[in-house]
């Protein structure tokens, strides 16, 4: 039981098919995985092996065709869209490869966006937290810049701050450094892991970068829809 409480995320025998009719592909073929709080996991493997598909399923952005997903001990596989959306807002933070900032909003507003939806904090508290998160990713001076006025590395750092905004227990990152140079890659990875460790969050990242993978607590290689 105590062991179960340490797992922020679990999945068992996940199956996922993509495409239709003749183009239907069995992408995940019964994948099982678990992630402990305060640990950083890397999922590696060749393109098309199902890494990102697994990550979207774990993040409840997609629905599996079979298998179980458990977030902080709660089974999510058979829940409706509303419950999955609520779980995403409360327990999961995402960092995508292409930053996915909302470009009409400033860095501060982007970080405040999940907090506004969750509504746990008052406006001054949200603003303080967003400032503090942006300062911790080194963008304390650029809080009022629009997404379009930030470099790629800066945008990804804002995305990291945003993923941490609601203090989720799980951070899922899909090639978070895939679009960055070496210096920025290291910076973003260090940030992600340091902040996650400090807050006892489970970090699961999909990466092609062997150096990044080596620095994670655990690396899970995938091939043809299965962990090897």
């Amino acid at each position: 039981m105590a062991d179960s409480a340490n797992f922020a995320l679990r999945c068992d025998n996940l199956h996922r098919y993509l495409g239709q009719d003749d183009a239907r592909v069995h992408v995940l073929k019964g994948v099982s995985f678990e992630a402990r709080r305060g640990q950083v996991y890397a999922i590696v493997g060749p393109s098309g092996c199902g890494k990102s598909t697994l990550l979207y399923l774990l993040g409840l952005l997609d629905q599996p065709d079979g298998g179980e997903i458990e977030i902080n001990g709660r089974k999510m596989s058979n829940t409706d869209d509303l419950a999955r959306t609520a779980a995403r807002g409360e327990h999961i933070g995402f960092v995508f490869q292409f930053h996915f900032l909302m470009l009409e909003f400033t860095a501060l507003e982007n970080v405040m966006m999940p907090m506004r939806k969750l509504g746990r904090l008052s406006l001054p508290e949200m603003t303080d937290r967003a400032h503090s998160l942006l300062a911790s990713v080194g963008l304390g001076e650029k809080t009022h810049r629009l997404g379009t006025q930030l470099s790629g590395g800066e945008q990804q750092r804002v995305a990291v701050a945003r993923a941490l905004a609601n203090q989720p227990s799980i951070i899922l990152a899909d090639e978070p450094t895939g679009n960055l140079d070496v210096k920025n890659s290291a910076l973003v990875f260090d940030l992600l892991t340091r902040l996650a460790k400090e807050n006892g969050q489970a970090v699961v990242l999909v990466t092609h970068n062997p150096e990044i993978a080596q620095r994670c607590d655990l690396t899970r290689p995938m091939r043809d829809g299965l962990f090897v």
């Binding site: 993040g59 952005l61 509303l82 959306t85 609520a86 996915f100 966006m113 999940p114 939806k117 969750l118």
Partner: peptide
């Protein structure tokens, strides 16, 4: 569409 995906990933519901 990407902004919609971001919002949904952050916990914004369909009705939002």
């Amino acid at each position: 569409t990407k902004d919609i995906a971001i919002l949904r990933s952050m916990g914004y519901e369909r009705r939002d």
